[in-house]
Each structure stands twice: as structure tokens, then as C-alpha cells.
């Protein structure tokens, strides 16, 4: 575990040593707030909850999370530091897990900084804070899923732009799979696939969390989703590290 945390610490510090972290956090806070209050009709709904916020977060993460993960491995390979990292006495899986945890912690920090929204609903009304906590947990799960996808794709290329574009595309698949457009189309034409599409959709699962429903099935889904992509990440690192 020591190796994992050492890698994670270095990685997290690296985010804050460049403007990337601050740009990310500021854009995330501005966009999530703006969308919640305008398109989300936060006041017009006159309900003390954060439903509109939780509805927008997966779509914001869709663009912002790949921006965090694109450099994760691509940068190491470009600089040649991957050779240094992987010849230190830490196992490869520790490097993979450490980098993922750092990125996840960073997303958690960004999410935590949306706390003024929580304060606002508590001042204006009497929300169910348990439901809100469940929603945040769901957001963290979605962030972890996108991060695991992005990290694996980043390990496949030296080019950060390619890593970003591919990650957005793959994350979009899992975000859009549960949207009505997709599921209605599929249930008309390919009913079998409609169930599958709903099953792999991360947004559908987040919707359950944001209603305050934390089901074991959803937690297992996210955990195995992240696990599978991290496993793919480790394989990608092993195959492409020396290219």
C-alpha cells in the first residue's frame, strides 16, 4: 500500500503545481452553479433539493474528467518518466492505482467545493440532507468511472489530444446509453439491447443515487466498472510502456 500512496501523493501535488487544477475547479464550479440556477430552474422548482445539480454533473464531468486523465500516462511516456516510475521498487498495479486515486481525490475536492449549493438549499428550505449526500456519492462514482476510462485510454497513447478526444467519446457512450433517445430507439428496433444499454448507463445509476436510493447493485456496478477499466489500464501500461 505504501507504493500506491506515494504515487498518489506525488500525482495529486502535480495537479496543483500547474494551472490545470485551478482552471478545472473554477470552470467546474462556475458551470455547475450556472447550469443549476438557469437551465435547472433551481428557484422555479421551489423544491429544496439538488436534483438539477446532480442531473448536470455527469455531463460536465464528461468534458472535464478526460481533461484530467489525458495527461496521466501520456505525459509520463512523453517525458520518459514512465521508465523512472516503473523501475522504482513498486508494483505496476500500485502505480496504476496510485494515479487513479490521485485523480479521484482531485475530483472529490472539486465536488466538495460545491458546498455553497448545499448551504443554499439548507438556508432556503428544509432539504433531506441524506438524499443530498447520496447524490454526492453518486457523482463521485460517476467521476471514478470516467476517470478509470480516461486513465486506461491515456496509457494507450503519447498524444494528450488523442487521449482526451477518445476518452470523451467512450465516456459519452456510457453516459448516453440510458438516455430516453437511445433506449426508446433501441426498444423499438432492438429490444434486447435496450436493457443492456440501460444496464451500462452511468447516468441512470446516478439518477437513483440522487433520489437517495443507494442500492448494493449500483455500488457493485460502479466498483466493478472501475475495476475492469483499471485492469485494462494495467494491461495497456504493460503493453505500451516501452514504445
Amino acid at each position: 500500500m505504501g507504493g500506491t500512496m506515494t504515487v498518489a501523493r506525488r500525482e495529486l501535488a502535480a495537479y496543483f503545481s500547474t494551472p490545470v487544477a485551478y482552471v478545472f475547479i473554477v470552470i467546474f464550479l462556475v458551470m455547475s452553479g450556472a447550469l443549476t440556477f438557469t437551465l435547472g430552474g433551481f428557484f422555479a422548482r421551489s423544491t429544496a433539493d439538488l436534483q438539477p445539480f446532480f442531473a448536470f454533473v455527469p455531463w460536465l464531468f464528461l468534458l472535464l474528467v478526460p481533461a484530467i486523465t489525458m495527461r496521466l500516462w501520456a505525459e509520463e511516456r512523453r517525458l520518459g518518466t514512465i521508465e523512472l516510475l516503473l523501475t522504482l521498487p513498486i508494483a505496476q498495479w500500485q502505480a496504476v492505482l496510485g494515479k487513479f486515486l490521485a485523480a479521484w481525490a482531485f475530483c472529490a475536492i472539486a465536488l466538495a467545493l460545491t458546498f455553497p449549493l448545499v448551504l443554499t438549499v439548507n438556508v432556503l428550505g428544509d432539504p433531506d440532507n441524506g438524499v443530498i449526500a447520496a447524490g454526492y456519492l453518486g457523482c463521485l462514482m460517476v467521476a471514478g468511472s470516467y476517470l478509470a476510462i480516461g486513465a486506461a485510454i491515456s496509457a494507450l497513447t503519447k498524444n494528450q489530444v488523442i487521449a482526451f478526444v477518445l476518452s470523451v467519446a467512450v465516456c459519452f457512450l456510457f453516459a448516453a446509453a440510458g438516455s430516453p433517445v437511445v433506449t426508446e430507439f433501441l426498444s423499438r428496433n432492438l429490444p434486447v439491447m435496450a436493457e443492456v444499454a440501460r444496464g451500462i448507463s452511468v447516468t441512470d445509476r446516478l439518477a437513483a443515487f440522487s433520489r437517495g436510493v443507494i442500492s448494493l447493485r449500483d455500488v457493485i456496478f460502479f466498483a466493478s466498472f472501475i475495476g475492469v477499466w483499471l485492469f485494462a489500464n494495467a494491461i495497456a501500461v504493460d503493453l505500451r510502456k516501452a514504445d
Partner: peptide
């Protein structure tokens, strides 16, 4: 102890 080719290091550290 290994010094890789080109002595790669993390530039921002």
C-alpha cells in the same frame, strides 16, 4: 539504482 537514458525527471517538482 538506475539512471534511464536522458535522465528523465518530473519537470514541475
Amino acid at each position: 539504482g538506475f539512471l534511464p537514458e536522458g535522465a528523465p525527471t518530473y519537470p514541475e517538482m
